[in-house]
Simulated assay, not measured.
Amino acid sequence: MNRRIGKLCVTLLLCIGLTGCWDEVTIQDLYYFTAMGFSYDKQAKEYELYGQVIDVAAVAQKEEASSSKSNSVFGHEKGESPSIALDRLFKAMQMNPVLDHMMTVLLDESSIANLDELLDGINRNSAIRYTINVLGSENPIGDMFQTTGRISTSPLNTNIYQPNSNKRGLPFTTNNDMRDLVRAYKSCPCTVYIPKLKLNENHWVGNDGKRLRTPIFDGAFVLNNGSYAGKFTEKQLEGARWFMGSTHGQTITLKKRDRIASVLQVKRSSNDYHFGKSPTPSMKLKLRVRAILTEYDKNLAENEIQELATKEVIEQIESTLRLARSRGVDLFNFEGHIYRYHHARWKKMKSGKTNFAELPVELDVKVHLIHSGKMKMRKS
């Protein structure tokens, strides 16, 4: 018994000399990649990689929030493949690079055509998970990583890192992570939307008189049947947004005799597809929108507002349908729906080389005012 107690005492004494984790690395001794961007030079057949590195320790300190000090830098390198470019950039770094905190991948238009190779190169890295954001960029990637004049000095408080945070400025689709992209791109002949960012310097000015350059969402890059189909603006996609995108917080502007009559804000919407097989294949689109009044013309009755709003939404959908047919792009993902729910018929239509963007469409749209409080306020 005494021998056991002696051994225990010796062990405890030895533990005093231990200093904790022998392989501990301080946060300042690591380079944390938080975002990457890719561009492709078709002539040189090279990828250009951009990597943004953020000083995590500085961002985490509350006192830095009111400082003008920059907490991020970015670097770039070229290579015949994404992994070669990344390896070359790693070799040029002064401290150990870490990809465990990657949050976003930005793709410009030139790289979308090489999406297969990009996805393969990115997802083979075990540190990068399928929950990272995948976004498009209308501007050069380097410019996106040099956004200036942030209202909050943390570089993490932008649409690049938090795309779904501003409910009034949501991207075209809020299903914008790597998992959603791969599932839609690889598992079915679905239409894929990659939300597109562009730099905006038209709205905010700092105390120094300089305009703020901030990234905002405007439309999307579209892939159709596994191929890049082009970029589309927010205005061009407003009809497809009711079925393919996010609608919460969107406004419906009503006009009467070429002047604004009322403005509605969407609180929620629901949609449904119905595939008609005979006499010829066709689609029926059902949409129900619930909205509130934000601006009101006292000369309009509630039923008139609902009728005008329904007409406006129908015009938006019909406009995007015309655009889809003119460019041969299935912007409403009709093929994806038929593939999932009417597979046998899809195979027959596919073998007959059906252009799904040209299917006849019937619309069933209704807009309902949740409440008319502002109308009652004006009348009192």
Score class of each variant (00 low, 15 high):
residue 7 K to P: 08
residue 222 V to D: 06
residue 364 D to T: 02
residue 262 S to M: 06
residue 197 L to W: 02
residue 234 E to P: 04
residue 380 S to A: 12
residue 376 K to R: 07
residue 305 I to C: 08
residue 72 S to Q: 10
residue 210 K to E: 14
residue 94 Q to H: 07
residue 186 K to N: 12
residue 161 Y to D: 14
residue 130 Y to E: 11
residue 37 G to N: 15
residue 86 L to I: 13
residue 9 C to A: 14
residue 89 L to T: 06
residue 160 I to N: 10
residue 116 D to K: 06
residue 195 P to L: 01
residue 135 L to A: 06
residue 147 T to N: 05
residue 88 R to D: 13
residue 312 E to L: 08
residue 188 C to S: 12
residue 173 T to C: 07
residue 214 T to M: 08
residue 83 S to P: 03
residue 108 D to W: 12
residue 355 N to T: 01
residue 346 W to F: 04
residue 122 I to H: 12
residue 176 N to S: 15
residue 100 D to P: 07
residue 341 Y to K: 05
residue 162 Q to K: 09
residue 215 P to Y: 14
residue 291 A to F: 11
residue 318 E to Q: 14
residue 149 G to A: 00
residue 202 N to W: 02
residue 4 R to E: 07
residue 174 T to D: 10
residue 71 N to T: 08
residue 225 N to R: 06
residue 170 L to R: 13
residue 155 P to D: 00
residue 38 F to N: 11
residue 131 T to Q: 14
residue 199 L to C: 00
residue 350 K to R: 03
residue 300 L to K: 10
residue 355 N to M: 02
residue 308 L to V: 02
residue 182 V to C: 02
residue 104 T to F: 10
residue 77 E to G: 06
residue 380 S to C: 07
residue 35 A to Y: 05
residue 225 N to G: 00
residue 355 N to F: 00
residue 138 E to G: 11
residue 247 T to N: 12
residue 87 D to H: 06
residue 372 S to D: 10
residue 235 K to P: 11
residue 248 H to M: 04
residue 66 S to W: 04
residue 314 I to N: 03
residue 304 E to G: 04
residue 116 D to P: 03
residue 103 M to T: 08
residue 349 M to T: 03
residue 161 Y to V: 03
residue 157 N to T: 13
residue 6 G to D: 09
residue 264 L to W: 08
residue 185 Y to M: 04
residue 2 N to Q: 11
residue 60 A to C: 00
residue 210 K to G: 09
residue 126 S to V: 04
residue 96 N to R: 14
residue 186 K to C: 07
residue 177 D to E: 13
residue 68 S to H: 11
residue 273 Y to I: 00
residue 233 T to C: 00
residue 39 S to C: 09
residue 271 N to W: 07
residue 377 M to R: 09
residue 218 D to K: 01
residue 284 K to R: 15
residue 73 V to P: 09
residue 326 S to D: 07
residue 228 Y to H: 07
residue 25 V to P: 12
residue 233 T to V: 02
residue 212 L to A: 15
residue 374 K to F: 09
residue 146 Q to Y: 11
residue 332 F to W: 14
residue 237 L to E: 12
residue 190 C to G: 05
residue 305 I to W: 01
residue 208 D to A: 00
residue 158 T to V: 03
residue 46 E to R: 15
residue 261 A to W: 07
residue 67 S to Q: 02
residue 100 D to L: 14
residue 379 K to E: 04
residue 181 L to Q: 04
residue 357 A to E: 12
residue 184 A to P: 06
residue 358 E to G: 01
residue 79 G to N: 05
residue 174 T to F: 03
residue 1 M to L: 04
residue 302 E to Q: 09
residue 313 V to C: 03
residue 286 K to L: 15
residue 120 D to T: 02
residue 339 Y to K: 01
residue 167 K to T: 15
residue 78 K to L: 08
residue 246 S to M: 06
residue 166 N to M: 03
residue 237 L to P: 05
residue 223 L to Y: 04
residue 161 Y to Q: 10
residue 4 R to Y: 10
residue 43 Q to W: 00
residue 357 A to M: 07
residue 202 N to M: 00
residue 78 K to W: 05
residue 332 F to M: 03
residue 130 Y to Q: 06
residue 47 Y to V: 09
residue 351 S to A: 10
residue 220 A to D: 05
residue 370 I to N: 10
residue 173 T to M: 04
residue 278 S to V: 12
residue 49 L to W: 07
residue 245 G to P: 11
residue 230 G to H: 01
residue 355 N to R: 08
